[in-house]
Write a protein that binds this DNA or RNA. Structure first.
Lengths: 140, 140
DNA sequence: CGATTTTCGTAGCAAAGGCTACATTTTCTA
DNA sequence: TAGAAAATGTAGCCTTTGCTACGAAAATCG
């Protein structure tokens, strides 16, 4: 066990999962850009996240090390199976949180922003409560 | 400009406010430890956040530079007025989020954890929706 | 085809927040 | 009060995620 990532421990969660959040954001974006233009380039992500292409390159390098992304020099970015799985999971969570915020009365614009921040910090249990309440509120 | 700029604007927020989140967490903790034992020491924060005392020292050094904390060598940590204000605001937000999660059915344990993650990403508008819905659900 | 523009890679720097190891100061206790 | 224990400080290193600057590769345009 190289990394003691025992997330069973409770207090550790809020701190150092930042890299994991970034990973989720990136694969989600790659997935969506793929669905849109059919391909994803470094410069697309740079524009989307409003960072320099260098920052994107560095994050992508890490995601490649972690087996989430594949690409060749000057080539488009592709997700691995693991990358696609993470993207799908992120997208589902994102959607549940967003719909929940809309359902409780948050405006579309603000909900879009807050979802970005919240989605990485919602446990399975809370997510289920979100989904249930969204149904209830919509069922009215 | 192929992509709408709103995306970039949204992501800018989720990215680099980490230092501000840390500041809020720290002053909140300092405030609560103060309320508890009457004083707060580096080692208390180290235990609370489960990091080394060195990490705490470094964060505190930043918070001192930013005028949120005051302390003398080997002395206890004190909040400035600005620090207390931030702590109070953080505590209010924390409480609203926590009570909201409890109200929608999240267990106390999980709510405590998720609140830590969520509280820094909730806009004023969303917070107001949380508060309103909590009232409604409790009013039943 | 050549030239320009766009995209990408690399080098090097900074800030935050992690760590260990070791020195120092305070505090506790025998 | 002397010595041990606890707390704090300092030095030095790492990783992530930012940046600018500059050069190389690809794509586009004339």
């Amino acid at each position: 066990m190289l990394e003691p990532k025992t997330f069973a421990d409770q207090h550790r969660r809020t701190r150092s999962d930042h890299a994991q959040e970034t990973a989720a954001d990136y694969v989600e974006a790659i997935d969506q850009l793929h669905a849109g233009h059919g391909k994803c380039r470094v410069v697309d992500l740079a524009r989307q996240f409003d960072v320099s292409h260098v920052t994107v390159t560095k994050v992508i390098a890490r995601l490649k090390r972690e087996g989430l992304v594949i690409s060749e020099p000057y080539g488009p970015l592709e997700l691995t199976d693991a990358g696609r799985q993470l993207a799908a999971k992120s997208r589902r969570t994102h959607e549940i949180v967003f719909q929940f915020l809309r359902a409780i009365g948050v405006s579309e614009k603000v909900a879009a922003i807050d979802t970005e921040g919240i989605e990485h910090h919602v446990s399975r249990q809370t997510l289920e409560c979100f989904r249930r309440l969204t149904e209830q509120l919509q069922g009215k």
